[in-house]
Design a protein around this nucleic acid. Structure first.
Ligand SMILES: [Mn+2]
Ligand SMILES: [Mn+2]
Ligand SMILES: [Mn+2]
Ligand SMILES: [Mn+2]
Lengths: 222, 222
DNA sequence: TTAAATTTTTAGACAAGACTAAAAATAAAT
DNA sequence: ATTTATTTTTAGTCTTGTCTAAAAATTTAA
């Protein structure tokens, strides 16, 4: 159910949830179980019910795929989740590392209208605090050019547009290094040995970025 | 679980949830069942569990009372509910007749901190859109002098401070008559026959108020 | 191409929360 | 003080969502 804007670099174009997931590749029962911390047996049971209701395409032993209807529902959930995250950060002053769990609860409040009003109240934000895209009322959103920081070269200049991981430890760590959405920087060095990079954030001192970190920061070349 | 500020006219003083409910009078199993639209059997089952957890005092056939701990929990829920109602009206532009059901969902989001921040964001409102008191972080609140409009006499001037019924039909009806929290008016006539009243809202035309309506509007004499 | 390892499903059980129908306790009426 | 009516509880069942252990299917390796 979780969308991964990260996997879709390239041109700006319209997309739906399918574009945000690994297109057409079924997810395994075990992976789902792992993701939601439940047993594989429970996942099988539930998936069968969702299949009955036509929210997923499921054939035993072959994994699971969202149907169009399931995708629509999932997109709505993603929309709600991300708008609530915006609210928590923009209006209640939470940090980007604190909002996911709260949004997980708020997203289950049933009311289309509430979310639409929330969106208006927030002035129609296009991205959530982690840089993820917010689908509009109709489920559409605009894709964005982006690439992992690890793919940049020396002397490139770039802007941080998102993160691949929402883990609060990771986000807090980035925060401590003053790395946040919107900051611009230049690549000073890239070490062939392990791919570590030295970058300099405009108006600040140079920082060393480990390859694992670099892979999980999404940037836009400028 | 629902607090009734209406039952406590009189002097301004500190209170807790006990003050807001019919003090010490146990609620019957059937009344609870009616209130939540469940069977009496279900209520008995659940009450037994709450009794186990010490949230209520229950003895079979004798009805149910909140314990101190249960009261504290209930107060928190009431606080959350009312703050969310404020949010929906103040920030998202909902009408007072639309917010109860949404707040019923939002109140179940688990996070003390979230509610405290919401309260601050709303500038520490003391009353919700229906004029009900909002407990503070510690569960305390200040009682307010009030009486039903039906108890006023000719030539009295008063201000609307709340409503006894939260039914959306009733609230919409009041709205249509331009009766809302904060408006001030004068009693022109009171008909002995059935208790109907004619009132005039400052800067408007006189209106006729039926006794049922008058009983459910809380006012403060001025 | 068969055997071993892994993944996924089934079978069976359990807890929570609901319900209906019948029994028991309490309250009201004669 | 009995009888009758009402309220409340118990008994038994159902549904939903979860789990573990064992069986079945698929994938990987020999
Ligand atoms: Mn999130
Ligand atoms: Mn996010
Ligand atoms: Mn309410
Ligand atoms: Mn209210």
């Amino acid at each position: 159910m979780k969308a991964h804007a990260d996997q879709v670099g390239g041109k700006v174009l319209k997309g739906d949830l399918q574009d945000l997931t690994k297109k057409g590749i079924p997810v395994s029962t075990n992976d789902l179980a792992e993701e939601i911390s439940a047993s594989a047996a429970s996942v099988t049971d539930m998936i069968k019910k969702l299949n009955e209701k036509k929210y997923v395409d499921y054939q035993r032993y072959q994994g699971t795929l969202l149907t169009l209807e399931g995708g629509r529902l999932a997109t709505k959930l993603v929309r709600r989740h991300r708008l609530w995250e915006c609210f928590l950060v923009e209006k209640l002053g939470y940090g980007w590392e604190e909002v996911h769990e709260l949004a997980e609860q708020l997203e289950h409040v049933q009311s289309e209208d509430l979310v639409d009003r929330l969106e208006e109240f927030l002035d129609f934000p296009r991205f959530d605090p982690h840089g993820d895209l917010i689908p509009d009322r109709t489920g559409r959103f605009t894709l964005r050019t982006q690439q992992p920081l690890s793919s940049m070269s020396i002397d490139d200049r770039a802007e941080v547009v998102g993160v691949a991981i929402h883990d609060s430890q990771f986000l807090k760590f980035l925060g401590d290094m003053n790395i946040e959405i919107g900051i611009q920087f230049k690549i000073l060095e890239k070490f062939d040995y392990d791919g570590s990079m030295r970058i300099v954030i405009d108006g600040s001192q140079p920082t060393l970025i480990s390859p694992v970190i670099a892979k999980n920061i999404h940037v836009k070349k400028i």
